[in-house]
Amino acid sequence: MLIRLFNENPNPREVRKVTEVLRDGGIIIYPTDTVYGLGCDITNAKAVEKVARFKGLKIEKSNFSFICSDLSHLSDYSRPISNSVFKLIKKNLPGPFTFILEANNNVPKYFKGKKKTVGIRIPDNNIIRDIIFELGNPILSTSIRDEDEIREYTTDPELIYEKYKDFADLVIDGGPGELTPSTIVDCTSDEIKIVREGKGKLEF
Rank of each mutant, 00 (worst) to 15 (best):
N83Q: 07
E158Q: 04
L101R: 12
P181D: 02
I139W: 00
T98G: 10
L101D: 04
N125W: 14
T43G: 09
R23P: 02
G39E: 10
F86P: 07
L170P: 05
K61H: 13
P123V: 05
G39R: 07
I27S: 10
D70A: 10
F66E: 04
V171P: 09
E203F: 02
K114T: 11
I27F: 12
F54P: 03
T188R: 11
S84E: 15
E191R: 02
V85C: 06
I184F: 01
E147N: 13
E178L: 09
P31I: 14
I67V: 12
L179P: 01
F111H: 01
R151Y: 07
A45L: 09
T34K: 13
T98P: 15
T188F: 03
T43L: 15
K163L: 07
I132Q: 08
V21C: 13
K109L: 06
S75T: 08
V85M: 08
G25T: 14
P12A: 00
L135K: 03
K46S: 06
V18Q: 11
I81P: 05
D33C: 12
G26M: 12
V51R: 04
S182H: 02
T32V: 08
L38H: 01
G113C: 11
D33P: 11
K61D: 13
N11H: 14
D33F: 07
G177Y: 01
T98V: 15
I29K: 03
F133R: 09
I120R: 07
G25H: 15
F133E: 13
D41E: 12
S75F: 04
Y110Q: 05
L71M: 07
T117K: 15
P12C: 02
P96M: 14
Y164R: 06
G39L: 12
N7Y: 03
I128V: 15
D190V: 00
I67T: 12
K17R: 14
F86M: 14
G177M: 03
F86C: 08
G119A: 11
F54Q: 02
S62N: 06
L170K: 05
D33S: 12
T183G: 02
P123E: 13
G113I: 05
C40I: 12
I81S: 04
P12L: 09
H73R: 01
I150S: 06
K17I: 01
K199R: 14
P12F: 07
K165C: 09
D148H: 04
K55C: 08
E162T: 04
E191L: 05
N105Y: 08
G119S: 13
L202W: 02
L38R: 04
K55Y: 12
D130H: 09
E8T: 06
I132M: 10
I28D: 10
I144C: 08
R121A: 06
K116Y: 10
Y30C: 11
E60Q: 15
S82T: 09
F111V: 08
S84N: 07
R151L: 00
S84I: 03
S78F: 13
N137P: 03
